[in-house]
Measured scan of single mutants.
Amino acid sequence: NQASVVANQLIPINTALTLAMMRSEVVTPVGIPAEDIPRLVSMQVNRAVPLGTTLMPDMVKGYA
């Protein structure tokens, strides 16, 4: 099963992502692949992401 990127904390809108904000977890539906975590660092979210939410490509500016 593919691990996805999950929010490790509440991430406010327009926040630049850091490693501490993300974790890898096997979830359904599948979100951004966990191997993309290094690429996500310093990218901004375009909405508030609650703790435990799977990051989807449309939630991260410049990812999709």
Results as ranks from 00 to 15, higher is better:
Pro57Tyr: 11
Pro29Cys: 04
Val41Ser: 06
Pro50Val: 06
Thr15Tyr: 15
Pro38Tyr: 09
Ala48Pro: 05
Asp58Ala: 07
Lys61Asn: 13
Leu51His: 15
Tyr63Lys: 02
Val30Phe: 15
Asp36Gly: 11
Val6Gly: 00
Ala20Val: 10
Leu51Lys: 15
Ala20Trp: 15
Gly52Val: 01
Gly52His: 11
Ala48Met: 13
Asp58Met: 11
Thr18Leu: 12
Lys61Ser: 14
Ile37Lys: 07
Ile37Val: 11
Ile13Met: 10
Ile37Pro: 00
Ala20Lys: 14
Arg39Phe: 09
Leu40Trp: 02
Val49Asp: 01
Gln9Gly: 06
Pro50Trp: 10
Ala20Tyr: 14
Val30Ser: 11
Val45Gly: 01
Leu17Val: 04
Ser24Ala: 14
Gly62Cys: 03
Val60Ser: 01
Ala34Leu: 04
Val60Cys: 02
Gln2Leu: 11
Asn1Arg: 06
Ser24Tyr: 09
Met59Ala: 12
Val27Gln: 08
Pro57Lys: 08
Leu51Thr: 13
Asn46Cys: 03
Pro12Glu: 08
Thr53Asp: 09
Val26Gln: 08
Ala7Arg: 00
Gly52Asp: 09
Pro29Ile: 10
Met22Ile: 10
Val26Met: 12
Pro29Glu: 08
Arg47Cys: 04
Glu35Leu: 12
Leu17Ile: 11
Ile11Glu: 00
Val5Ala: 14
Leu55Ala: 01
Gln9Ile: 07
Ser4Asp: 01
Leu55Cys: 02
Asp58Arg: 06
Val45Asn: 03
Gly31Ala: 04
Met22Lys: 01
Pro57Trp: 13
Leu19Lys: 12
Met21Leu: 05
Gln44Leu: 10
Glu25Asn: 07
Met21Ile: 04
Pro57Arg: 15
Leu10Ala: 06
Thr54Asn: 02
Val30Pro: 15
Ala48Leu: 12
Ile32Asn: 00
Ile37Ser: 04
Thr28Lys: 12
Ala64His: 09
Gln44Trp: 11
Ala20Phe: 14
Tyr63Gly: 04
Gly31Pro: 00
Thr18Lys: 13
Ser42Gln: 15
Val6Thr: 08
Gly31Arg: 02
Tyr63His: 06
Ile11Pro: 00
Ile37Gly: 07
Leu10Ser: 11
Ser24Asn: 08
Val45Pro: 03
Leu10Phe: 10
Leu40Asn: 01
Thr18Ile: 06
Ala7Val: 09
Val45Trp: 00
Met21Phe: 11
Thr18Asp: 07
Asn46Ile: 13
Leu55His: 00
Val60Ile: 08
Val60Gln: 01
Arg23Cys: 03
Leu19Thr: 12
Lys61Trp: 13
Ala3Arg: 14
Asn8Phe: 04
Val27Ala: 05
Asp36His: 07
Asn46Glu: 15
Val6Tyr: 02
Pro12Gln: 11
Pro33Ala: 05
Asn46Pro: 03
Asn1Thr: 11
Thr18Arg: 09
Lys61Thr: 11
Ala3Asp: 07
Pro29Asn: 14
Val60Leu: 08
Val26His: 11
Arg39Asn: 12
Asp36Tyr: 10
Thr53Lys: 06
Arg23Pro: 01
Pro50Cys: 03
Asp58Tyr: 06
Ser4Phe: 03
Lys61Gly: 07
Gly62Val: 04
Leu10Thr: 11
Asn14Arg: 06
Tyr63Phe: 12
Val6Asn: 02
Val26Glu: 14
Ile11Trp: 01
Val30Cys: 03
Ala34Pro: 10
Thr53Ala: 12
Gln9His: 09
Pro38Glu: 11
Val45Thr: 07
Met43Val: 05
Pro29Val: 07
Met22Ser: 01
Met43Gln: 05
Met43Leu: 10
Ala64Ser: 13
Arg39Gln: 11
Thr28Ser: 13
Gln2Ser: 13
Leu40Cys: 02
Pro29Asp: 06
Val30Leu: 10
Gln9Thr: 10
Asn14Met: 09
Gly62Pro: 10
Ala34Met: 10
Ser24Trp: 08
Asn1Leu: 13
Ala7Gly: 04
